[in-house]
Amino acid sequence: MSFAMEPYLALLLIGFLPSEAWRWLGIVLGRGLDENSEIILWVRAVATALIAGVVARIVLIPPGALAGVPLSVRLVALGGGFLAFLFIRRSAFAGVLAGEALLIAGALAFGT
């Protein structure tokens, strides 16, 4: 079950296909689909929460070099970036910048 076996097969079968199938289905079903129907709203909520799960996973169980930064620094950087976003005119750019600055400063202070 590890990607060392067949990463390219996995790319096609469980990366490309499950994404592309929805696009094809969109062409086939075409119109007659209400963007704001209840089922679409629920599916969007599930997908949004799932992506949030990916963010939590990368921050809590980080890969490679990011794992060298202490957990507390990673969490403070994520939270601080979000606060900067809230207080600086809801600017995503400001949020990312603040988060990155906190991460680098924290890593310098507490080691990577």
Binding site: P18, W22, G26, A47
Partner: peptide, 12 residues
Amino acid sequence: TLSSVRFLPMVA
């Protein structure tokens, strides 16, 4: 699969 469902309404 779940993360890509959004393509259906987008394409439509």
